[in-house]
Design a protein around this nucleic acid. Structure first.
Lengths: 222, 222, 222, 222
DNA sequence: TATGAATGAGAATTCATTCAT
DNA sequence: CATGAATGAATTCTCATTCAT
């Protein structure tokens, strides 16, 4: 009720969400029992239900929090940037940066999209659609600007998402290139591929990355 | 007698696998109960266990059958083709063609990769690794041949898999471009992207596709 | 129908009973499935049902065969022997000899006495009662003849059965004394104990054992 | 709060164990379903699992509790008694007294010894071995002291256990002699038998029994 | 005689969730 | 805020048995 209480509650909620996301990511949502979460959080079974109403809501909270952040960060980052190619580049960077820094949550977001039903599903999905639309419009704009023909817009859009979202299946921060490299590689493959080899001014692809990355670091990072 | 009997058993097994794959694809492996499968196949709960030893083995049979076919078809298709770019193109075509024609099985393959444990997992995984290696070596070859620099091999490989495997999340055969178009789009985006816009002789990309596609139609198609 | 057929049938039945007894002895009746027996006998599940009508009947056949033999052998052996002490001695010898040579069946007889229900149970039990009565009368006779007081007849009877039947829990033919020794030890402990140290003419205890043992070798031995 | 709560849990656990033991004794472990126990305890199926982790652990808890008590009582009773014959006598008394007063548990202990597997089996078995060793050493001591020859130690030991443990097959507290009589009979038969009629001072066999019996009444008795 | 295929009944166990305290 | 105790519903799987062939 007081600020202190609310803050303690939030802290613990975030702790529960983080921990749950880690377990969901490892074992999958359906194979994780509330008992597993109780064990991992050192809380009692029933104690957990103070923080969420059902297992499904727990999943929702994770996904919603996650999506809101990615989408919010993305919008903030793109605000004021006009050039569509640059906007796309920033979007990819933001997405991958958040993904790599919140691997568990993003895996849960990508992999457990259909583990949620009903209204909660709709809520998450509406955010997802906004995000997809954002990307699709961006790609459309780029395609028009560069006279790209013969590339289907939906194929392009979801190819990009495929490249980005698939990383939970293989990316290992300790063995693989860092986020910057990952971003650069994926941007290069996708953008050059989309534009069919038509030149893109290098500066559009290279400038200012680091400064933006800093702003994209998500709330949940310690 | 023997041929007929064996064939009846096999027919029914295939029917069980197909049906199960459809339900797994729709509801997810863990959310599907053997009851669901019994209902869909019009068999008794226990009757199903005549065809597989456990739910997990059922998943394995689907994945194994699926992987074996993709990998087998792929090898057969690539045999005798020397040019790596063309080989890659055929591989992508084969993958997408099989995927689109066996959407359920391929979704189960992609999405339920970790729903399987222990030895059965290892078996499936060893086939997966062969396939990944095949792709990676191909890309390596292409990259060397075209002096591609600054693209990480692992990023390239899994970007391609990401593009291809993600389609179970969005591709709708009735609304979207057909397999040929899908193939062409993805090949173009990825290959041009990989090569950084360096020219690829158009004939390498365009010739002879249809005839091959016919040969890649998988065993399970009616 | 012909002698040949009947004989083949009997041979196979005995084989099934022997094999089943071995598995029952090892895993217990309830933990043994008909499938286990089918596997061990190299027969089909349904093929077994030609030889018995139900799992319970299978148990019955083993127990009945076993009891009939012990009881029959015993009566034949005791026929013509008048001295009760000698009769008892022969009875113990016969029991232990049969037990040690048919460990599996006897374990099933001792341990699974209550795994059988209804009429089949009654049938086995009636034979058991005859056997118990035989022993009890023998002990009564001995007790009277030797003025044994202060030993309860039922306690004596079942102490003897306890000593003899418990051996399936510990006796190891390869490590322990042989049947003759086992017989001698148990007879000595029980008989001396019963008679309270009153002298028994040694010849009653020692003579003629071997010749009788030969006759007690049961039908099932190869 | 703590004492009360702990006690409530323990009380209920003991109630569950007692009830289960009764059903196991009557129908056998394998033929008893958790449903049977739920019915008899007036608890829900799943509610039972709050008190034990598996049916097998339930069996273990019964056997372990039982063995611990017998062994513990036995050691306490024998402490300070030097004469081996007297020690044996007390041991037999303790065993039979506990057995008769906890017929269900002891039947489960005797009859379901092999219904338990793996580590739980090992745990119970290690206690069993301690108990057997105790008896065997005692008998060895007695045999040496009285120059007993020609009795195999293992035969003697397990004959005694056979006499004592078999009682679950026949002893009826309402029809048969009481525990004191049972003890006396079995001690007399076994001990006289073992010593081959050699005199044992009567006072060693007769004194002080009742007072000890009182002390051996087990925890579970109401 | 023998068996492949099938099944109904029931087994143990798990799980999300609740509620009195 | 927190939890110990409890439960209904569902899950996977096993088993004895059958029956057409």
């Amino acid at each position: 009720m007081t600020v202190e209480t609310a803050s303690k509650y939030d802290q613990k909620l975030v702790y529960v969400l983080k921990t749950s996301a880690a377990i969901f990511a490892e074992k999958g949502y359906h194979s994780t029992s509330i008992r597993d979460i109780a064990r991992a959080t050192n809380m009692s079974l029933s104690g957990l239900y103070y923080y969420f109403g059902s297992k499904e809501e727990l999943l929702f909270l994770i996904q919603d929090y996650c999506f809101s952040t990615v989408l919010g960060d993305c919008r903030r980052l793109l605000a004021g940037v006009d050039d569509p190619v640059r906007r796309l580049k920033l979007l990819i960077e933001n997405h991958l940066n958040y993904f790599v820094n919140n691997m568990n949550e993003m895996k849960v977001l990508s992999h457990e999209a259909n583990s949620i039903k009903g209204d909660l599903f709709k809520k998450v999905n509406s955010k997802k659609r906004q995000y997809v639309d954002l990307v699709m419009e961006l790609l459309d704009e780029i395609a028009r600007a560069h006279n790209v023909e013969s590339i289907d817009l939906r194929v392009a859009t979801f190819s990009l998402f495929g490249m980005m979202n698939w990383i939970y299946n293989w990316y290992n921060p300790r063995k693989d290139v860092d986020v910057a490299g990952l971003s650069q590689n994926i941007t290069r493959i996708f953008l050059t591929g989309l534009l069919g080899g038509k030149a893109v001014k290098p500066d559009k692809l290279e400038t200012g990355r680091e400064s933006h990355l800093d702003r994209t670091v998500s709330v949940w990072q310690q």
